[in-house]
């Protein structure tokens, strides 16, 4: 019977396993292999050399770009966490009717099912030189000339990240908050805890798994991004993803692969650290 269970389990999981093998594991293996290959201007050839890595680690650009990537990830994380936590807290503890709760939750999640590209494009009329933000600020007399740093800057990149990814914080945090036993909150209040104390000493610790899952999503999405940075910075800023996509554009696949391997290792190490704090399967 138990052998039967393992066999049946694998049979049912086979399609998933095949897809992951073919389109996840094999591509990773391929990238690792190609990262040791050589390249001419037009083609790549099999080889076993460390030149791609040597070049990568000796170039100051690499460190700068990795630094920028961490910076984007950290700032985006801080914003999405504080906004996401506040929104989830409001939904979970201040909305009394379940119907309203579901409706408002859906309002927060619907943008996730629409196009990221369009959501990025939609910032242009806001942030442009003659955009809504500048026109409004000028008409209020706050500034005399249009601010140049609103669009095509670190500011617009991070704004777009926060806009795109905050719901990855809202959903898991809301999910864990909804499982908090309400009697714990009553107990805290009965024992004389203020609202803030309850928040800090009861709700926050119990919400940690949700925060971790949200963090994993946001950090990996930002670290692996190449399109938001390119589009929102008007190609004036760089992160690791753009470094890879530039190499791809120049057909320098081996060097793109080497960068990709380093990026993947960085991301996986960060996730391994984060996963020490949370058991994902139990939290669903």
């Amino acid at each position: 019977m138990t052998r039967n269970r393992h066999l049946l389990g694998w049979l049912e999981a086979a399609p998933l396993a095949v897809i992951l093998l073919g389109f996840l594991i094999a591509p990773i293996v391929m990238i690792v292999i190609v990262s040791f290959w050589g390249a001419t201007e037009f083609s790549i050839y099999p080889d076993f050399q460390f030149e791609n890595y040597a070049f990568l680690f000796s170039s100051p650009v690499t460190y700068k770009v990795f630094g920028a990537t961490f910076k984007y990830a950290f700032i985006t994380w801080a914003f999405t966490l504080s906004i996401g936590f506040t929104v989830a807290y409001f939904l979970a503890f201040h909305i009394r009717s379940q119907t309203v709760q579901i409706a408002l939750f859906l309002v927060c999640t619907i943008p996730f099912w629409t196009s990221n590209i369009i959501r990025m494009i939609s910032w242009i009329p806001f942030l442009g030189r003659n955009g809504i933000a500048n026109q409004t600020l000028i008409s209020w007399g706050v500034i005399d000339e249009p601010l140049e740093w609103l669009l095509y800057s670190d500011f617009s990149v991070i704004l777009a990240f926060v806009h795109l990814y905050t719901l990855f914080m809202v959903v898991p945090i809301f999910n864990t908050m909804m499982r908090i036993d309400k009697s714990l909150l009553e107990a805290a209040r009965d024992n004389g805890a203020s609202g803030l104390q309850t928040l800090l000493h009861v709700i926050l610790p119990l919400t940690k798994p949700g925060i971790m899952i949200g963090t994993i999503f946001v950090v990996t999405l930002v670290m692996g991004d190449f399109i938001t940075v390119r589009f929102m910075s008007g190609s004036q800023r760089a992160n690791v993803g753009r470094l890879i996509s530039n190499d791809i554009g120049l057909l320098q696949y081996p060097s793109a692969s080497a960068t990709a391997v380093v990026l993947l290792c960085t991301v996986l190490i960060m996730i391994a650290i984060l996963l020490r704090f949370v058991n994902i399967r139990k939290e669903l």
Binding site: A26, I31, I216, T220, G224, G241
Partner: peptide, 24 residues
Amino acid sequence: ILFYAAITSLVIPSILISLGVGLI
């Protein structure tokens, strides 16, 4: 293992999938 492969699939930078599949 399969579960962790699925999680990896979720968190892996998308450009790696693009690049790897393209290369293969």
